[in-house]
Design a protein around this nucleic acid. Structure first.
Lengths: 143, 143
DNA sequence: GACACTCATAGACCCCACTCTAGGTCGTGT
DNA sequence: ACACGACCTAGAGTGGGGTCTATGAGTGTC
């Protein structure tokens, strides 16, 4: 089934650089240190790729490498610590929820500004309303 | 109206450190270089605080300081470049939308993992299902 | 058998966004 | 008188997350 992938192939299909892949490995982010060919070259399995994709999801949702390492350690230790894994996941879940909240709020503010600029540009009123080269001009647009 | 605020007061009400406030100023993130008392101390206006709050929104939605500086420059230059400001804002808006998308996708994945772990813990099946201290064990939970 | 290519390691380097330090000034309270 | 706390500047240091370099070895093909 799993043919064995070179680091270059894994880089290609995960979008991580080969540098990053080696870096992640050094950092202990792979459940088991990648197998090697006789010549020392890394051989990745499809499972490794799947795991990496999960790490990428974790990273891109703001989980620090350190926490990913903790999670990896738990998984590596095997059965018995499922509660801990769950706690870690839940905590990250909350974190992500908070981020989404925050971004939505930012979005609200930005969209408001965009709308106002757009309106004034449409009106051709821009030249009348933007008076001072100051904070205030933009702030009044923001408020 | 505006009484004039010390850097400490501004730090308190924006949540930025006094260090960060000075840093932001050096970096050209304030529309006009803050006024000073005769003794050289900074005096912030409420407008400055408002502007800073906007910067904070920008930052916390992932806008690099560099881009905030560009926006600030545009505002500082005054009327005539509203199109550019709008373009910058729109571009950031898209960026934020993409981030929200991404986070939602991560959330989906994480929630799925959480659900599965929770199920197995509820079932008490954890000890049977988690077999190997390997990627696979967790990957099967993820899939 | 020469050239290009991919891989290997160890460690240096980079960028970003702060954060902190050193050394000094001012104004107030006791 | 003098200590204290808030402020000032310039610039060094930090932490996270990679990225790049130097150096060398194995493979593939003309």
């Amino acid at each position: 089934m799993s043919v064995g992938l070179s680091i270059g192939q894994v880089a290609e299909r995960t979008g991580l650089s080969v540098h990053a892949l080696r870096f992640y490995e050094r950092e202990g982010l792979l459940a088991d240190p990648v197998r090697r060919e006789s010549n020392g070259r890394r051989v990745y399995t499809e499972d490794d790729v799947e795991w990496l994709n999960m790490c990428i999801k974790f990273r891109s949702s703001g989980m620090p490498l350190d926490t990913i390492r903790k999670y990896t350690d738990l998984v590596r230790q095997g059965r018995g610590n499922e509660r801990e894994r769950l706690a870690l996941l839940r905590s990250h879940q909350e974190h992500v929820a908070a981020q989404i909240e925050e971004l939505n709020e930012c979005m609200r503010v930005i969209t408001h500004k965009v709308t106002i600029y757009q309106q004034h540009l449409d009106d051709g009123t821009a030249d009348c309303l933007w008076v001072a080269p100051s904070t205030t001009a933009d702030a009044s647009a923001a408020s």
